[in-house]
Amino acid sequence: MRVLLLSVLIASTAACTWVPIESGGKTVRVLPNGPVAPGCVAKGEIVVSVKNKVAFYNRNPLRVQEELETLARNEAPSAGANAVQATGQPADGSQRFSAWQCPPR
């Protein structure tokens, strides 16, 4: 019974998104890797982290990456930025992003 309950709990947390997008984060763009568009001004760096493991279970790496991106988008307005760009790959549930203020598209 305990094994079944634990299995259900792990399966349900694998599909969960624990990080909701905030209203300010909805307007923040995620820039692709590579050169930043002309006219964008660097506003600093954002470092975010989420749980990448639950007990002995490793969470889906794609889900972790989505949540890290969402957290970075949520933080960008407080840095005066309207765009973020990953500066590296996620590692141990943490990721760095550069924050940018870019002209409207």
Results as ranks from 00 to 15, higher is better:
residue 2 R to Y: 07
residue 2 R to W: 10
residue 4 L to D: 01
residue 5 L to R: 05
residue 8 V to D: 00
residue 8 V to K: 02
residue 8 V to Q: 03
residue 8 V to S: 01
residue 9 L to T: 09
residue 11 A to H: 12
residue 12 S to C: 13
residue 12 S to T: 11
residue 16 C to M: 14
residue 17 T to Q: 10
residue 18 W to Q: 06
residue 20 P to C: 06
residue 20 P to L: 02
residue 20 P to N: 03
residue 20 P to D: 09
residue 20 P to F: 07
residue 22 E to W: 07
residue 23 S to H: 07
residue 27 T to W: 06
residue 28 V to S: 06
residue 28 V to I: 11
residue 29 R to F: 12
residue 29 R to T: 11
residue 29 R to G: 04
residue 29 R to C: 02
residue 32 P to G: 00
residue 35 P to H: 10
residue 35 P to I: 12
residue 36 V to E: 06
residue 36 V to K: 11
residue 37 A to R: 13
residue 37 A to I: 03
residue 41 V to E: 13
residue 41 V to S: 10
residue 42 A to N: 13
residue 44 G to E: 08
residue 47 V to I: 11
residue 48 V to F: 01
residue 52 N to D: 15
residue 52 N to F: 04
residue 52 N to C: 05
residue 52 N to G: 09
residue 53 K to I: 04
residue 53 K to M: 13
residue 54 V to D: 07
residue 55 A to C: 07
residue 56 F to C: 06
residue 57 Y to E: 10
residue 59 R to H: 10
residue 59 R to W: 02
residue 61 P to Q: 04
residue 65 Q to P: 05
residue 67 E to P: 09
residue 68 L to Q: 02
residue 68 L to Y: 06
residue 69 E to G: 11
residue 70 T to I: 08
residue 71 L to F: 12
residue 72 A to G: 03
residue 73 R to Y: 05
residue 74 N to I: 09
residue 75 E to T: 11
residue 79 A to K: 15
residue 80 G to P: 13
residue 81 A to Q: 13
residue 82 N to T: 02
residue 82 N to S: 09
residue 84 V to N: 05
residue 84 V to R: 01
residue 84 V to D: 00
residue 85 Q to K: 14
residue 86 A to S: 15
residue 87 T to K: 15
residue 87 T to L: 13
residue 89 Q to L: 14
residue 91 A to I: 14
residue 92 D to E: 14
residue 94 S to G: 12
residue 94 S to M: 13
residue 95 Q to E: 14
residue 97 F to I: 00
residue 98 S to D: 14
residue 99 A to M: 05
residue 99 A to Q: 10
residue 100 W to F: 13
residue 100 W to G: 08
residue 101 Q to R: 15
residue 102 C to L: 05
residue 103 P to V: 04
residue 104 P to K: 11
residue 105 R to W: 15
